[in-house]
Amino acid sequence: MGRLIAVVLFIAVLVPGVLLARAWALAGGRRAVASASVEFTSPTAEARDTVQRQATHGRRVRRIGLLLGLVAVAGSVAVFAEASVFLWAPAVALGLLIGVVLAEATRPRPRWTTGTPPRRPRRSEQISLWLLWTMRVVVAAEVVTAVLMWQRDELPDRVAWVALGAPLAAWLLAEVALLRALVRPLPAEGADVPVDEALRTWTAHLVSAAASVVALLPLGFLLLVAGVRLGDRVTDGVDLSPVALVAGGFSALAAGLAVAAFLVTWLRPVQLSERALAG
């Protein structure tokens, strides 16, 4: 009976990760709608200039993120010596993800004329609130888990600082980008509105996905470590805590990889092709 309960619990804990991956798959529909709305308009010269400048800015800052990842690799070699070889790929990935969030948080403001009185969109028009709050909850869960394990001497100080600093930095940058996308007034020219909405949609999904990945992968690793250590204890009766922690770890890792895959599809900038009008 205990094994059956453990299996059911393991499957149940995996469900949130599956639901999160499903939600990000559905977010692809929002991207398709935003792209189609841009193609059905004739953007102004200011809109074209804005899209080009923001795409160039994004590529440049992401290269800075790659450079940060390489610097992190060098730092890991200095700190962990030969053992750092296992940290090279995560360090580069972390640098790239931070570059994605930093690029969105520092995007140049559009130069088009804003409406009078200023109008601003609602958050739900840019991204699903479920995805947005899931990102925040995941970051909070990762920070709490890291702090608890650190207090119990289950994490070395150097690992704990990285486990706390990276998700918090990504979250803060994501919130800055989300706030900028929310408070920026809509353009006065009607043809530029779909372009502006597409840019906001891209920003909201990019930063939410990147911050989620930065938190989900460390969270999964921490939960797996905690579950394995609890499983080594000798207890009376059936202890389901290790099963729940291990299942939660696998769920977080799988969800993080799935969100990372969807993040790649959002990296392509907004395109102004006007194919619908040309046809």
Results as ranks from 00 to 15, higher is better:
Val147Cys: 11
Leu96Tyr: 10
Val159Leu: 14
Ala55Ser: 10
Val243Arg: 03
His205Met: 02
Pro194Asp: 01
Gly75Lys: 09
Ala25Asn: 14
Pro194Ile: 02
Thr265Leu: 11
Pro187Leu: 02
Trp88Phe: 12
Ala258Pro: 10
Gly75Val: 10
Ala83Thr: 11
Leu267Asp: 00
Gly248Pro: 14
Ser212Tyr: 00
Pro16Val: 07
Thr265Asn: 07
Val238Lys: 03
Val243Trp: 02
Leu70Ser: 07
Val238Tyr: 08
Gly115Thr: 15
Gly28Cys: 11
Leu172Phe: 14
Pro16Lys: 03
Val71Ala: 15
Ala260Gly: 08
Gly17Ala: 09
Val176Tyr: 07
Glu142Thr: 14
Val225Cys: 04
Val159Thr: 15
Asp157Cys: 03
Phe10Tyr: 12
Glu104Met: 00
Ala258Asp: 12
Ala276Gly: 07
Val13Ile: 09
Gly2Thr: 08
Ser273Ala: 13
Pro43Met: 04
Ala166Thr: 02
Pro156Cys: 11
Arg233Trp: 07
Val100His: 03
Gly231Cys: 08
Val234Ala: 11
Val101Met: 04
Leu277Gln: 11
His205Tyr: 03
Ala146Arg: 01
Arg59Pro: 02
Leu253His: 04
Leu219Lys: 05
Leu14Glu: 09
Trp202Ile: 01
Val162Gln: 08
Ala160Val: 10
Arg184Val: 10
Glu197Asn: 12
Ala12Phe: 10
Gly58Gln: 08
Glu274Arg: 14
Pro156Ser: 10
Val8Phe: 12
Leu219Tyr: 07
Arg109Ala: 12
Ala188Gln: 11
Ala204Asn: 05
Leu240Gln: 05
Trp24Ile: 05
Arg180Asn: 02
Gln271Cys: 04
Ala89Cys: 06
Trp24Tyr: 15
Ala93Trp: 06
Ala247Glu: 06
Leu155Glu: 03
Gly256Phe: 00
Ala45Phe: 06
Val33Gly: 04
Thr56Ile: 07
Pro108His: 12
Leu97Phe: 06
Ala83Leu: 14
Thr134Trp: 03
Gly115Trp: 06
Val246Cys: 13
Gln52Ser: 15
Ala276His: 11
Leu94Thr: 15
Gln151Phe: 11
Ala103Asn: 02
Arg3Thr: 11
Leu102Ile: 02
Leu97Lys: 00
Trp161Ala: 06
Trp112Val: 13
Ile127Gly: 01
Ala252Cys: 08
Glu154His: 08
Val183Thr: 15
Ala174Leu: 08
Phe80His: 13
Thr134His: 05
Leu97Gln: 00
Ile98Gly: 00
Leu206Gln: 04
Phe80Val: 05
Val270Ala: 09
Ala255Thr: 04
Thr106Gly: 00
Gly190Gln: 14
Leu168Asp: 03
Val100Asn: 01
Arg62His: 06
Val73Tyr: 09
Ala21Arg: 09
Leu164Glu: 03
Ala188Ile: 05
Leu224His: 07
Ala170Gln: 01
Leu66Tyr: 12
Gly28Ile: 07
Leu97Gly: 01
Ile11Leu: 15
Pro187His: 02
Ala103Phe: 02
Thr106His: 00
Thr203Pro: 01
Leu230Thr: 08
Ile5Glu: 14
Met149Tyr: 05
Ala276Cys: 01
Gln271Leu: 10
Gly95Glu: 03
Ala181Val: 01
Met1Asn: 08
Ser42Gln: 14
Val176Phe: 10
Arg136Pro: 05
Ala160Leu: 08
Val13Thr: 06
Ala6Asp: 11
Gly58Thr: 06
Ser124Thr: 15
Ala174Trp: 00
Gly279Phe: 09
Thr50Ala: 13
Ala6Lys: 13
Pro118Cys: 06
Ala261Trp: 07
Arg275Phe: 09
Leu186Cys: 11
